[in-house]
Amino acid sequence: MDYIKAFVVGGILCAIGQILIDKTKLTPARILVIYVVSGVVLGTIGVYERIVDFAGAGATVPLTGFGYLLSKGVMEAVSKDGFVGIFTGGMTATAGGITAAILFGYLAALFSKSSEK
């Protein structure tokens, strides 16, 4: 059951992104920014938590999930450390994904190159 929920909710989040691609002149980078910021906003007001509880990876894998993680991290850090948590929470919570992207990106650049299309 959790697979179906992940499939449907994740699929819907992607389909919304497709509407933005086809119907607006927004560049991919702007669409991703919109997703992340939406995730932070929905995370802060507590809505995204419920979507995550329902859909699992269907909500955490899309970039809105990345935004949710940022907001969750910052709120937990503020609870624990107070003011300084504002500066440490977001990055700490998302460090795994960002570090992985940098590391594997660098390795890909070392071992591969772009190909003719």
Binding site: D2, Y3, F7, G10, A15, P62
Partner: peptide
């Protein structure tokens, strides 16, 4: 977008 994006999330799950 729906089925490929959904599939990636399912793999994540």
């Amino acid at each position: 977008a729906f089925w490929i994006g959904g599939l990636i999330c399912m793999i994540g799950q």
